[in-house]
């Protein structure tokens, strides 16, 4: 019978660091989305809405 792999148990400190890393990634991605939006508006201005319908 095949042995089941030992489950990985994170220490509270490891969990805390992982949560902080995840939060930093989320904030960075949010910032990137905002940056791309603002740069698009700055470069194109109102023209961004001027498209054939």
């Amino acid at each position: 019978m095949a042995q089941r792999p030992v489950p990985v148990r994170l220490t509270p400190e490891e969990q805390k660091r992982r949560r902080q890393r995840s939060l930093a990634i989320a904030l960075t991605l949010g910032g990137l989305v905002l940056l791309i939006f603002v740069v698009t508006m700055a470069k194109l201005g109102p023209q961004v809405l001027n498209r054939p319908l």
Binding site: V8, L10, T11, E14, R17, Q20, R21, A24
Partner: peptide
Amino acid sequence: FATPGLSQGDVADY
């Protein structure tokens, strides 16, 4: 590294 495959660094380390 305490847990194989898991980063031990916090945000400040990166």
